[in-house]
């Protein structure tokens, strides 16, 4: 009996995750060359699968892996009802970034979602088209705008350089991820006062759709406890 933990396959997120697992007493054995599969050293009951961060969210939703490390933003973006599919037992203290709503700084009259609602409502009558929001976060945007009563706007899919969309004339506002806000400011945009959709960071995520037997639940609890302790011992 074993469980699989999906770990980001590259970059800072991968390095930080491996360091944390090591500190938690779950060091990951180096995979064979060109392989993306391995185990926790000496623990054939805890397998490790290296996947891209967005695939991790998808596989957790499908239940093909039991646990995984990825950004909360990706997990909440991948499915319509994330809280029905995932548990978020451990915030890992790295990979922090906010998903935010930002508008041009020249919109001096817009500082809140309520302002944006006013603007969106009259947009078509004034300019002959709907307000356009560039984002790769469809789900998060739809949910957030819906909660603020904004229904009439259009999403323009943007898979990169989203903050450039207003200057490029392809969108009026954006929903994007930012850690310091500097890219947003550099592009003459500003974050709305109540425009923080999600304060995201890397999370240990547990799939609720994967089948869990008693032994797997034990392994799950062991991993959660170990990671929690490792995070707490490194917290400032």
């Amino acid at each position: 009996m074993s469980i699989t933990i999906a770990v980001p396959s590259k970059g800072r997120l991968k390095d930080k995750t491996l360091q944390l697992l090591e500190r938690a007493g779950l060091p990951v054995a180096p995979p064979a060359e060109r392989s993306y599969q391995t185990i926790v050293d000496g623990r054939s009951d805890i397998e490790i699968a290296f996947l891209s961060a967005s695939e991790i969210a998808r596989e957790l939703a499908r239940g093909t892996v039991q646990m995984g490390v990825t950004g909360e933003d990706l997990a909440r973006e991948t499915v319509a009802k994330p809280d029905d599919m995932f548990d978020f037992p451990v915030k890992l203290g790295f990979g922090g970034a906010d998903v935010v709503v930002a508008v041009p700084q020249s919109w001096i009259d817009v500082s809140t979602m309520a302002d944006l609602d006013d603007v969106a409502a009259s947009f078509r009558a004034r300019y002959g088209r709907r307000l356009r929001v560039a984002t790769k976060y469809w789900q998060l945007t739809q949910t957030w705008f819906g909660e603020h009563g904004i229904g009439v706007y259009r999403i323009v899919e943007s898979l990169g350089a989203t903050e450039g969309a207003p200057a490029a004339g392809t969108a009026d506002a954006i929903v994007d991820i930012t850690s310091t806000g500097s890219t947003i400011r550099a592009n003459h945009l500003k974050i709305l006062d109540d425009g923080i959709i999600l304060r995201s960071q890397a999370n240990l995520i547990v799939s609720q759709t994967a089948p869990w037997d008693r032994d797997m639940q034990k392994l799950r609890d062991e991993v959660i406890v170990a990671l929690n302790q490792a995070v707490e011992s490194t917290a400032p």
Partner: peptide
């Protein structure tokens, strides 16, 4: 402000 941001003048508000 719009000029500084290079916002296309006719594209939006």
């Amino acid at each position: 402000m719009m000029q500084e941001a290079a916002l296309p003048p006719m594209a939006g508000r």
